[in-house]
Nucleic acid binder design. Structure first.
Lengths: 222, 222
DNA sequence: AAAACGCCTTGACTAAAGTCAAGACGTTTG
DNA sequence: CAAACGTCTTGACTTTAGTCAAGGCGTTTT
């Protein structure tokens, strides 16, 4: 793998000069994970953050009853644990590969030194942080203000792509995972999907959700 | 008000030299709000962020049914909308004073220029962002993994202070606000408090929650 | 002081989501 | 290939939280 070139694909390093990329690549290492292998555990000392080059990882916590709750899923092009860079503390959640996944590991110490030399980088990072914070504000709103049907509708709408003449939404994760991501359980998700199908808003074709009534689906999503 | 001195009290500018503070103060202005006056609206162009010098503000959104949902409450020493600094976008929520409130307004454009000259500031800010992100991760966990009794117990425990020999928790906000902050409604909060009192975990004395059984309260909080 | 108001509480009821149990279906494993 | 397993679905039931309505109480307004 060409590390500078791969790094260049992230929003964070997209504007870097080739010189800066070379600098960055000097302390960046490649980390490969098999499916279900863990990248880090909650409570572990955070010494680095990661860039997902290929594959996907899930960030999750475990409740006192032992139940796993997915907080987010990061795919290729995303950063993982960049919030941990500037804290002396520990990772706040678990991170596990969902497929064969390749990551670039960027040690936080080296990265901080680099920022001090190149302040512009900091602005980019903070831009990324802002976006992430906004996303969380939306998520909290979603969890407190909307029911599961509406959350599911939003999820589908956010995943929308076009297939010839139809709007479709690929379920790239298992329904069990999706349930956890929506803050519910598989049974409830199953019933909610059924209800949307019954009302003619969507259809299911294998791994795809086919939108049958976009306007009404948008109404449900609010 | 002495602007440099006030700014110096924030975690963000606490480590600034008097020269840096003077620079910062040059483009910082004072903004006073009466109770219930709004600082900014959702969707408004974000041109500045704020430091709460005294008083408190709430950050909230409004659902499609017109219901207000508090996301967080910021008090003196806290920053408001610092996530909006690095986005070209707009404020993601409403902000309204809960008391007579004095804020320092820091225009984002000037501030970004300052960062470019003093990269160390950026590290401090990112540290603040990390903390905020962590807080959101906790919040999302709270909303998806715990019921209201447990959320309330956590809130009380996070607010704990000592009064001679007793653990107490001051309710510095109205119960209506607290309900919104916990993601519920006043009726449910009222019943949940009643249930904790009935079980002998807490007592209420005016504006204070008196902890009567800390161990069991911690169990409820999980 | 009476009326109006907002906040909080309570009760009866409803709606939403979770639990438990069972079974269908497809994939992996011995 | 059959057993074992995991995922998904469905049904019956329970729990949790929200809705609606009413009333208490203290504060502000007239």
């Amino acid at each position: 793998m060409n590390i500078p070139e791969t790094l260049n694909k992230s929003f964070l390093f997209g504007s870097f000069s080739s010189d800066q990329l070379r600098q960055l690549a000097e302390f960046t290492t490649v980390k490969k994970l098999k499916k279900d292998e863990r990248l880090f555990d909650e409570g572990e000392k955070a010494s680095a953050f990661y860039f997902v080059a290929s594959g996907s990882v899930k960030i999750y916590r475990i409740s006192s009853e032992g139940q796993e709750h997915t907080i987010e899923i990061q795919r290729d092009g995303d950063l993982v644990a960049e919030a941990a860079i500037f804290d002396k503390e520990t990772y706040p959640a678990f991170c596990q590969a969902m497929d064969e996944t390749v990551l670039l590991r960027i040690p936080k110490h080296d990265f901080i030194q680099m920022i001090e030399r190149h302040p512009r980088i900091a602005i980019e990072i903070m831009h990324g942080y802002s976006k992430r914070l906004r996303w969380f504000v939306r998520l909290v709103e979603d969890l407190t203000m909307h029911n599961i049907k509406s959350r599911l509708a939003r999820y589908i709408l956010n995943n929308l792509s076009r297939d010839s003449e139809r709007h479709i939404s690929k379920l790239s994760i298992s329904k069990k995972e999706l349930a956890s991501l929506l803050g519910t359980i598989p049974e409830t998700l199953s019933r909610t999907l059924k209800s949307l199908k019954k009302d003619g808003l969507i259809g299911e074709e294998g791994d795809y959700i086919v939108i049958q009534n976009l306007r009404r689906l948008r109404e449900v999503a609010e």
